[in-house]
Amino acid sequence: MPLQIAVLIMAAGASTRMKGIKQLMPWKDSNFLLETIKTVQKCHVLNITIVLGSNAELISNQCQLNDLDVHVITNTNWAEGLGNSIAHAVKVKLQQQETYDGILICLADQPLLSHEYLNKVINEFEKHPEKIIGTNYGKRVGVPALFPKIYFSELSKLKGDSGAKLFLNKQSESIISLQANKQIIDIDTNAEYEQLMAHTNKTKI
């Protein structure tokens, strides 16, 4: 029987370093958030949850999330940071008393992320279901990362803006780190967005 995996797509931040709402920035056929959802929907997962915070109602309405096969969690304390939003979402999932073998955490601002890479993470987890499967960032490990259920309680206690990074890097002996190369690029500023679009348009020529 395949392992039961839930996905949290983190989209709660205010994108203060960008002019505009990062989750809604145009990308491919729609925007960052919707394209991330499309990517995850191609993966072998049981449940997809979008974690919103800043501009939650606007994002939900513009992306028509209620019409998609996803769950939506809104963290009213999103300003306390990514760690707080992860903790809030995991608490909600635990309260729902649904059974998952693992939770895969992704970001909505990594537009180059592919479903092939996410399935690679999932396949590695199925071989080593007691391990955290993380993504190599050189000197550290980050998301996308897939956590087995023995870590759900600790995830529900995360705080601050570092997300799962500090937690991941304390668990080095329990992690298998995979290479995602340029897929780990995240977009935080308008300059980075313009570079992304320029490179994308250039490669289409």
Score class of each variant (00 low, 15 high):
L146K: 02
G138M: 07
L118F: 07
H115Y: 10
Y117I: 01
A145L: 06
K139R: 11
Y137I: 07
N119G: 02
N123D: 13
F147M: 06
L112V: 06
G142L: 12
K139I: 02
D101E: 12
H128A: 14
C106H: 04
V141R: 13
V143N: 12
L107I: 13
I105R: 10
E124M: 10
I122P: 06
A145V: 12
E126G: 00
L113Q: 13
I133K: 07
S114F: 12
G142W: 15
P144Q: 07
Q110V: 02
H128S: 03
Q110P: 02
H115G: 13
L146S: 05
P129L: 05
Q110A: 13
G142P: 08
E130Q: 15
D109L: 03
P129E: 02
Q110Y: 00
E124R: 05
E130C: 11
L113P: 11
G134I: 08
G142M: 11
I105Q: 01
N119H: 09
Y117F: 15
L118W: 01
K139N: 07
K131T: 05
P111H: 03
E124S: 09
K120R: 09
K139C: 09
C106R: 04
Q110E: 10
E126V: 04
L113F: 12
E124F: 08
Q110S: 15
T135H: 11
H128V: 04
K139A: 04
K127M: 04
V143H: 03
R140N: 11
E124G: 14
D101V: 06
V143M: 00
V141N: 01
N119E: 10
K127G: 06
S114L: 12
L112S: 12
N119Q: 15
Y137S: 08
S114Y: 12
E130K: 05
I122G: 08
H128Y: 13
E130G: 07
K139H: 10
S114D: 11
H128P: 01
V121S: 04
L112A: 05
K139Y: 15
L107G: 11
L112F: 10
E124V: 02
F125Y: 04
E130A: 13
Q110K: 09
K131P: 01
E116N: 15
F147N: 06
P144I: 09
E130W: 06
I132R: 01
C106T: 03
D109A: 14
V143A: 04
I122Y: 01
K120T: 07
